[in-house]
Design a binder for these strands. Sequence first.
DNA 1: CGGCAGTTTGATGTTACTCAATTTAAGTGG
DNA 2: CCACTTAAATTGAGTAACATCAAACTGCCG
Lengths: 217, 217
Amino acid sequence: MLEPSHQSAADEPPNWQRFLTARAGEQIATRNQSSSDVFVLCTGWAFRFLQLPDGRRQILNFLLPGDLLSVVTIFDKQFQFSAKAVTAIQLSGFVRSEILTRCKVSPGIQSAIGRCCVEESRAAGELAGVLGQRSADERIAYLFLHLMHRISARSVVRDHRYPLPLRQQQIADAVGLTPVHVSRVLSMFRDRRICVLSENVLNVLDHAELERIGAIG
Amino acid sequence: MLEPSHQSAADEPPNWQRFLTARAGEQIATRNQSSSDVFVLCTGWAFRFLQLPDGRRQILNFLLPGDLLSVVTIFDKQFQFSAKAVTAIQLSGFVRSEILTRCKVSPGIQSAIGRCCVEESRAAGELAGVLGQRSADERIAYLFLHLMHRISARSVVRDHRYPLPLRQQQIADAVGLTPVHVSRVLSMFRDRRICVLSENVLNVLDHAELERIGAIG
DNA sequence: CGGCAGTTTGATGTTACTCAATTTAAGTGG
DNA sequence: CCACTTAAATTGAGTAACATCAAACTGCCG
């Protein structure tokens, strides 16, 4: 997570930063497209994904406020993925060359980027482990726990209610299931009083059980 | 891929580099273990994997000569994964602090690391896409194509015969299938004259068909 | 020759997908 | 505020893909 630098009202807008917005559902990046900017999500939710030739897609990661679109966009001007807004969003773009220049003089930035790389790589490995080895219930429980963890890091969570503005189709694309099956698993979670997802809020009733199902080694 | 620097016979062994060997099947790294060294595989095959509590494992990547164990080991002393030797191997370890120091003065190294990060992230994303969205045939075809591509980059391939020292169990763990099902898919590939894996060699008979099955968008 | 690890094959079971119909929720314009 | 429209979620029945279990087979090494 990198925070976009604040811009005081009295200053001229700097030429190394620009702001963008997108509406819910709008595509904000396309694979193989080039950009001289590195983007940070400031408000709203988005996701990175791979589009397959037959129309299916794999969501690689949900993006929350403060997240870089992907850390590796710092090193490569070509996107290795596509990205879409889940809700209405605001993005901040920094010119890449500026970041790389600052990197050379600031060990702080350099190590922050390193930590981001580690985190992104860890998350990618975990996702592969979950998709390759675990059942439908476990995948969805894992996704919820993973998101809950990241939401908690950003804001106070009260009464085990987490804001989660996701359609079941998006959950399905993230965990490699069909939306129909996601619906069945969520019904099961609801019946067993584990958690309820409705009206863009995930209400966790039995955190211990959710962990028992979805925790990774 | 980073080449280990050569050490002339007349020199003293440098204190920032050390060599290691491991036998086939030996574990060479364990998750959460720390190491002050960054390792490069010099000879043989190995793989990185995640071990699940129930004993199953997901292979994240096969390592070929010249590969870093993982690029992100440059930024973090704790391994985020475990690793095992497939064949007998030789490893070269560089002390991390030395690499980071050189990074600051050499833009060449810095950008090489950047390219490695991009490549590793791209591969991780593709793996998630394959595991989440594609069928058994497609997963195995993808794995073969991916490995063929990497082998070709390292050595001349004659008569479409690729050295591939993998057990079916390892293929299974890499693509999220059971060894029994891997055997059936390989039988099918053999019957349909697409490719034959035996005696540690993958013989590709119908490259076009293999691509039709396993190519990613 | 015997033992072991790896592979193959068959029979059966389970999980998740597909297709299709129905219900619920969310907008939209009168 | 209410009919109308459309998107999302739920439910059921039938099916396909892959897992599981178990036995037979192969090649290799002592």
